[in-house]
Amino acid sequence: MKAITANIGYFFKETFTILKLNKLSNILSLLSITLAFFLLSLVVSTWLISTEMVEVLQQEAEINVFLSEEADDSSRYEMAESFLEIEGIQASRVVTEAEALERMENILGEESEVLTYFDENPFESFVEVKVDFEQVETVKESVSAYEDVRYVRDHQEVLDQIRNISALQRFLGTLFIVAAGTATLVIISHIIRQGIYHNRQQINTLLLLGAPNFFVALPFVLSGLVLTLAGGLVASLLTRFTVGLGYAQLVTPIPFIPLPPQELLVRNTTALILGLSIFLGLSGSIMGIRSSRKEESL
């Protein structure tokens, strides 16, 4: 369409004028949209995290054996050795504090510098035991019987819990998409209706001059899109920041936790939020335009 390409500058200028005209309510709706998108992306991120956890944990039957404080290094290695004699154990090795730290650095990737905030290594050493999937329970019992064993962590338990959480998050995620989506649609269509009302004289003039509907409507569609996209962008940045913080928080108490790579997680949620904001911006504006009263006068 020639009339679109020839007028791109005009459309953006109009969009800007429309947004400026009603500054306060536009800022307020931008804030609400940002908040809605941000909450949504948090729920979605945690959902993605728990899904990844379930997937990873499902593949490995593994228990982590933490020893009492008194146990020295040599007794750790001895114990790891002796575990191999227990039926159902495939492999057993000591994960040192340094290695635990290193694993975490790998998981965190670029964000691993948060670990430098700790004065000393926050991880403790443990014995990592690979187990036949069906024998987890009996192995746990045998291992727990050792004197120096302070605590046995079973992925199965964690797995079940995460599964529950994951299901809840899927539910919440869906709920949030619907809720944030509806809220955004309502806000945008209302804002656009307001903009159309404030600009009704100019719209009337354009229509009397024979302007096509798209020519009159496009700046309004664009202004809806600008609002949702801006909200989506800010929410994405906040998410990136929050996920970074969250990773640092999560990995410290639970070093073995299998998190999806942070970059991937952020990229996926950002794509979802931006995609949603485009979709909602367009449909909200169109709803607002559709529901506006059209009246012509001289």
Binding site: Q201, T205, L208, L209, G210
Partner: peptide, 20 residues
């Protein structure tokens, strides 16, 4: 009606210029 109006040059009583 839109096409028809494109052949017209209206000078409205209230002029209907765009301020700003």
């Amino acid at each position: 009606r839109m096409f028809l109006r494109q052949y017209m040059g209206p000078v409205f009583q209230e002029l209907k210029l765009i301020n700003g």
